[in-house]
Design a protein around this nucleic acid. Structure first.
Lengths: 338, 338
DNA sequence: CTGAAAGCGCTTACAG
DNA sequence: CTGAAAGCGCTTACAG
């Protein structure tokens, strides 16, 4: 009445028997083939093919105490994940880069506190060798101390505020990027340049605003600074605010493209033209910069590159190298809005 | 010169020693606490807290030959993943449902053939206990035979064409949904109802067209059937086609909301009004149905529910229950376009 | 270059 | 209810 006994998966013992060598030798060819004679190696290879042997990942992990996997920890709501194409680009880039080393990506979504606790448990529990940290809001990073304490290698996307020394990171050069955008707007002859800054608990939001202030120098007018949450609607709202406080604004540097798109809507709704009356510069070079009229002049964040470097640094950290930090330049992309 | 020896993680032996019991007893409380006296149980619990013990997942997996994780295999390009909010909803739903059982989701993206091979290796290699299959294009599912043969439990989102009997699935009722939409358009007094069907190598594309044909019965006019790829642009193109072939169309049932949005653009570009001149019915109830003017009347696919049921069925299959299939009704959502 | 052996940290019949 | 023991499938010094 029972099913025929499921044929057991072949183990390293079966391979050894078929190849006529010891288990140790099989293991050696499995783990790189060093210190194995060509003959033995060939016999083992043939035996593996013949038996259809596949290494048991759990046994290997137990013996080596390496998980051979890496987590992608996203501390954002799911809405944001799929709203913000930056996350998508990072996820793809990381997954692709990891695939080259044959390392699977375990996606951990931790939008709320319960999920974060679970994710921390998982990460510090030995399931993965390292973690790619992706989240903008630093306020949400209560788990950083634990991960850092547990000694699990981690690389953050963007500066992990408060943990710059303990956790490696890869960040776009927000400061220089913001400066460059302001200079560009100035080069267009604009002088009353406002800004819509992103959330001030994010390194990007903070640093881009700092870059703006730095470049504006004595021309900074506090009433020309407004804040948003990186969402479309917040950009629209902030722009209205700015225009009420100072109708003479002739340019605005917006902390990301999505808010810039919202800002353009607000500007146009007052009968002003972009870029003739008000030039708009964004940040990211996300699809939002292209979807709509006019297209948005922006500072491109090289997310493919960033994700690759994150993987490279993480793998290095897992191999025992000291954690490193890296800043990657942004690039001005001129389009219609400025 | 070397770091102080990293304190080794406590093992079950340490707990046993501290608790004054045997390893077996510790394991018993770890695995459910059956057949353990209250005293022993309390001692073990205390010892676990004292030592900070955490179970080693690899050792446990080796001993039980269960991975305690599940894969989410997405055979779509990354573009589609983040274009199509349905995937996002599924991913979130599955992740959340799985979290309740404390089972992590391993995200496997396999857009091209190389990635699919890698993913198949991974899945059949024993890394996961089961897999959630998400992809629309059945043409891309060359790995289905392998997974099925390897005996790894799998549940598909949508009918796995050609594997209906071997792989469980959860699907929205595309046939009845399409019928209902056609009936609804008819109830509006429309009689020259065209359709833009999705890809015919997807169960949704196929079945919704079948539902349309069935409900239209003798009123089917082949020139009123066009095809798209579920993308915005394809809907626009297909609608232009339809209008050229038959300018008198007074309604159109579109295979998904994204194409419906494109179709509306096409209709409006010819000077016709939606819904006055042509009523448009979509499918999915995705954000595309809301983003734009007019909002789209559509058949809602309950993706949260679908993902939950997928997880439930998969967990059951992992527990040895026979694979099951499940069809979930869609729901008409009336908005402005029809 | 190769084999024998110990060890990775757990679980699970088996006796008792 | 509990302990001793075998076993899960690999890797890795250690001798040779």
């Amino acid at each position: 009445m029972t099913l025929p006994p499921a044929k057991k998966r072949p183990t390293i013992n079966d391979v050894a028997r078929v190849a006529g060598v010891s288990r140790g030798t099989v293991s050696r060819v499995l783990t790189g083939g060093h210190w194995v004679s060509p003959d033995a190696s060939a016999a083992v290879t043939a035996a593996i093919a013949e038996t259809g042997y596949r290494v048991n990942p759990h046994a290997r992990s137990l013996a080596t105490s390496k998980a051979n996997s890496v987590a992608f920890l996203l501390t954002e709501s799911y809405e944001r994940l799929f709203d913000d194409p930056n996350f998508a680009t990072l996820l793809r880039g990381a997954s692709t880069a990891l695939a080259k080393s044959d390392i699977p990506l375990v996606l951990l979504m931790a939008g709320n506190e319960a999920e974060q606790r679970r994710a921390t448990e998982f990460i510090t529990g030995g399931h993965v060798d390292g973690v790619l940290l992706v989240s903008s809001h630093q306020g949400k990073q209560d788990f950083l101390p634990e991960i850092s304490k547990a000694g699990v290698p981690a690389i953050s996307c963007g500066i992990p505020l408060g943990f710059e020394r303990k956790i490696g990171y890869v960040s776009a050069d927000d400061f220089a990027g913001a400066q460059e955008m302001v200079r560009y707007l100035q080069s267009l002859g604009r002088s009353r340049i406002a800004t819509i800054a992103g959330p001030q608990d994010t390194s990007g939001g903070l640093t881009r605003l700092r870059g703006y202030r730095d470049e504006m120098g004595d021309d900074v007018v506090e009433s020309r600074i407004a804040y948003g949450d990186y969402g479309l609607a917040s950009g629209e709202r902030a722009m209205h605010e700015l225009l009420e406080r100072d109708p003479d604004i002739d340019a605005v540097f917006v902390g990301n493209d999505l808010m810039a798109r919202g800002a353009i809507t607000a500007i146009q709704s007052t009968g002003r033209r972009v870029p003739e009356d008000i030039a708009v510069g964004g940040f990211d070079d996300s699809p939002a910069a292209l979807d709509g009229t006019p297209t948005i002049t922006t500072m491109r964040q090289p997310f493919e590159r960033i994700s690759q470097e994150m993987v490279r640094l993480l793998l290095a950290a897992i191999d025992g190298e000291a954690t490193a930090a890296m800043t990657i330049p942004t690039q001005l992309v001129r389009r219609e809005s400025a």
